[in-house]
Design a protein around this nucleic acid. Structure first.
Length: 494
RNA sequence: GCUGAGGUAGCUUAGCUGGCUAAAGCGCUUGACUGUGGAUCAAGAGAUCAAGGGUUCGAAUCCCUUCCUCAGUACCA
């Protein structure tokens, strides 16, 4: 808020700076996820952050201006380009463009930032990381089942075993319900009422059964007084959906049985059930039981391009929010089958399925679980610069430590020795190496264990004892520097 | 997008029925301590009270506009 030069430094809305600790944790996560993806045969791919707007499918039909939700601009030839808003649309472009060279089914994973021009919220930013994996050109339920396996393995590799479940539903069943209720009999495009119904079901966990039923009927007014118009269904139609909504997710088989009765009049719906049964069979055979993968009729997942099974991974624990309230993490990954995405380019369907892990929320969860806490990188040892004329020597000491694999920095700031110690303390460094005139003359260095010193200071009241007796400090011959520092670091909890 | 609540030193806040030089804690700088972090003590720096306009003799305080933040809600590939 100062801006003395008249220019106010500020970050664009919805973006954030990410600092060391989080970056290191994220890199570790990415490494883990990549390893799991590769173990299933997915190969990494990188596409650029920018694509032509029409390739992403985000343009307004009448004008050539972009639809909301994307960062778009014109390039030097006045073509509209946009920052990618997910990794699936670029994949479709890639597959269509290199169709002839690819061996199908094509498996790839991609990890990187995506951008959405939306209202940011807590934990929701306009730039965030996605870790996608997809299988392109595989139409069978085996490919869908595998997506569930990858998600389960990925979350377990991150140390979340027992703290998550993967939930599966099928868009064909949802569409079948709409048909059974006499809403839209068009399996491809949904009418207005069906849209509202699907959105309402998606909100079940947030607004409750009552809220959903209000949305199926006339509409719903929320706490803030805002009114959302409903689908305007008849009492009869609503009661059909009520049965759907009260379906629990016991065993996968029983979910299929329950839903089958509700959609028995819809061919699409029955198709969806059949697919789920196949997925169940494969998962069960492969040892992915209900403790890891559930069938959940309430999963809807956006409304865009999904054509079959849809997936969502949820964390099942809660943590204390800053305000003391319990906070749920909710969905950390999602995906589904999309058989029509490549069709825009090639004119024929290319059956594809996959999912995306949202790194940022997962990272927050892992931090909350203290999963990674002690594994951040080693903070550096500080070589202090007491006597400027010995700078050469300090660089030599620094180098010796660095060559021994110990991260080491040399003090480069201004100010006296006292300030240097304070610097080391404030940065929470573990060790300070001290070499003044005296040490240098004797061919020694002094090494201070700052961690131990911090502990000792709790007992010491007296300044003379603290400063004068040099607690937690030892002087050794210069050639013992590396060994001594190593020994101290071994005993320092990080 | 809609509804509501807010923006006062780096941070957390007080002041808000208009009235001395806008207050405190934490943090920061310096010294006591000329080669030693913490603790203690002392001194100091730091705020166009979010921005712009209006009412008034006088505005952090009242009114309008914009921006930003927070909560809920809508949309969301």
């Amino acid at each position: 808020m100062s801006g003395d030069a008249g220019l106010i430094p500020r970050l664009p809305k919805g973006f954030r700076d990410i600092t060391a600790r989080e970056i290191l944790l994220r890199e570790k996560m990415i490494e883990t996820l990549g390893k799991v993806y590769r173990s299933f045969g997915f190969a990494p791919l990188e596409t650029p952050m920018v694509e032509y707007l029409d390739n992403l499918g985000k343009y307004l039909p009448e004008s050539d201006t972009p639809e909301g939700g994307v960062f778009a601009f014109k390039d030097d030839s006045s073509s509209w380009v946009a920052l990618r808003y997910d990794l699936t649309a670029p994949l479709a472009r890639y597959v269509a463009e290199h169709e002839k060279d690819l061996v199908l089914p094509f498996r790839r994973y991609q990890i990187g930032p995506v951008f959405r021009l939306e209202k940011p919220g807590p934990g929701r930013f306009r730039e965030f990381y996605q870790c996608d994996f997809d299988t392109v050109g595989a139409a069978t339920a085996a490919a869908d089942a595998e997506v569930c396996c990858v998600l389960a393995e990925a979350l377990e590799a991150l140390g979340l075993a027992g703290n998550f479940n993967v939930r599966v539903n099928n868009r064909k069943i949802l569409n079948g319900m709409a048909q059974a209720a006499g809403l839209g009999d068009n399996a491809e495009s949904l009418d207005r009422a069906s849209l509202i119904v699907l959105r309402a079901i998606d909100k079940l966990d947030r607004i409750g059964l009552k809220g959903v039923i209000e949305l199926l009927g006339k509409g719903r007014k929320d706490e803030s007084g805002d009114f959302t118009p409903g689908a305007g269904l008849s009492a009869e139609q609503i009661s059909l959906f009520e049965q759907y909504l009260s379906a629990s997710c016991d065993s996968r088989a029983s979910v299929c049985d329950t839903l089958e009765k509700l959609v028995e009049k819809s061919a699409t719906g029955l198709e969806g059930i059949a697919e789920l049964r196949q997925i169940d069979e494969i998962l069960t055979g492969a040892g992915y039981l209900e403790d890891r993968v559930l069938f959940d009729p309430m999963i809807v997942r956006g409304l865009a391009y999904y054509t079959g099974p849809v997936f969502e991974a949820q964390l099942t624990f809660e943590i204390d929010g800053e305000d003391g309230r319990l906070k749920q993490f909710g969905s950390v990954a999602g995906g589904g089958r999309y058989d029509s995405l490549v069709e825009r380019f090639l004119g024929r369907k290319v059956p594809s399925t996959g999912a995306s892990v949202g790194i940022d929320r997962l990272l927050a969860a892992l931090i909350a679980l203290k999963q990674f806490d002690s594994e951040t990188s080693q903070p550096p040892v500080l070589v202090t610069a007491m006597d400027p004329s010995l700078m050469k020597h300090y660089h030599k000491l620094t180098n010796d430590l660095r060559k021994a694999g110990i991260p080491t920095e040399i003090y480069l700031g201004s100010g006296g020795f006292r300030k240097q110690m304070k610097y080391a303390d404030q940065k929470n460094l573990p060790v300070a190496v001290i070499c003044g005139e005296d040490e240098f003359k004797n061919g020694t260095v002094s090494i201070k264990d700052l961690y131990l010193g911090r502990e000792l200071s709790k007992e010491i009241e007296d300044r003379a004892e603290w400063a004068g007796n040099r607690p937690a400090q030892m002087t050794v011959p210069t050639n013992e520097l590396v060994e001594t520092v190593k020994k101290i670091l071994r005993n320092t909890p990080s």
